[in-house]
Design a protein around this nucleic acid. Sequence first.
DNA 1: TAGTGGTCTAGACCACAGA
DNA 2: CTGTGGTCTAGACCACTAA
Lengths: 240, 240
Amino acid sequence: MIKPARRNWQDVMSEVEQRIYSRQWRPGELIPNEADLAIEFGCARVTMNRALRALAETGLLDRRRKVGTRVTLNPITKATLQIPVIRSEIEARNHLYGYYLLDEKIEKAPHFISKLFNVSVGTQLLHVISLHCADGSPYVIEDRWINLIALPHLSDVSFAALSANEWLLQNTPFTHGDISFGATNASAEEASILKTKAGAALFTIERTTRNRIADSKPKDKALTNVRLLFRPGYQVHTNL
Amino acid sequence: MIKPARRNWQDVMSEVEQRIYSRQWRPGELIPNEADLAIEFGCARVTMNRALRALAETGLLDRRRKVGTRVTLNPITKATLQIPVIRSEIEARNHLYGYYLLDEKIEKAPHFISKLFNVSVGTQLLHVISLHCADGSPYVIEDRWINLIALPHLSDVSFAALSANEWLLQNTPFTHGDISFGATNASAEEASILKTKAGAALFTIERTTRNRIADSKPKDKALTNVRLLFRPGYQVHTNL
DNA sequence: TAGTGGTCTAGACCACAGA
DNA sequence: CTGTGGTCTAGACCACTAA
């Protein structure tokens, strides 16, 4: 069987995908090395490399030096998902976005936050609680702690009319962070804010952003931690 | 200021990141084109391209032909997360994995499943409910529908001792699918299986996998749909 | 040690999208 | 039309790692 010469790395990638999906190359199996495949496909080795690398990034192939390239056994291991930027998400659905500041004060860090921010327990931090609405209905509660030591100029900013979410996104450079997704039962207070029943299951996102570069100090500084409590029924969706 | 010649694309990428984090290149700003940067960094244009492309993939840069490369305004928009493969996840924590089949029968598809699978309403489908445990404690309920028309050989397989999750992962090629994350209150029955209270907030993952290539028919066929109900307190975590 | 993937280079041409 | 990123090529060398 003569293979027509492939033009670009995406065509090459598709052909490789075909071979995997058609089980010509089975899960766990070792496929030929780059050089041989490049000859077979009639392209440069770099092009072959690009195609195989892309498939490895999506998790379909598993590549190791000296060993070779294998078809992954369990391909469903990664998904890239959009992290909701609240205002955009609401406006993308053609709903009217609304923002309400519920509470804003400087207070002592609770234990878990001081550990997260790597500050001593009594430190004064900015605590902002707000509500985002879609067409007037409660959409998500934002419960945010801000590290005033790392972001001192923030004590002058008021979040009465402006979401802390947006302000920080556009004004605070960060280098890395972490994010968790979970579920929690609404407290009586949270339920009343979201206009639902106490105990309702809420989807939650908790995110901490840090900045490794701006500080010359060796330790990481957390800039801000935010906990988002979404209204009942909220889902995050993505394709594989 | 003389820049030392950079060795590889990752070094180049780091330097570009530095310029962004240090605000030498600000959000929304246009940076020099590839060719000029390659000269400045003392590397080939391809190498520069690789570095900038990688940053564009993580969402830090926004590149358009003819227009140029901009620093993204809202960089927190994407996260790649590991989709839990239940057995591996449990064993990775050094817990003993346990699997229990709760129910397995062929029955008529409910409305939402028949729509999802694109089959008529009365179609007989395989419905498997099982429980995965960690060190003997309930971990997650798996509620799965399997399309017997797309996977006819499956009627011979029994999932009494073998998780449908694993069997399908290793034996069913699929080309794409979709996945949702959400939260739901445990029903009385679910709560008793998970040994928790009715109404507890459970983190849920719902996944449908499809196969576009195996069929010559134009329509997609969903192969299987699975709903995972995790024990209270479960979280998915990833870094940014 | 040897085989594999990972990467670099220089130069060329292509594809897209403003002007 | 022109300027930008996108890609291809051939050949070379490097880096990791199983044997």
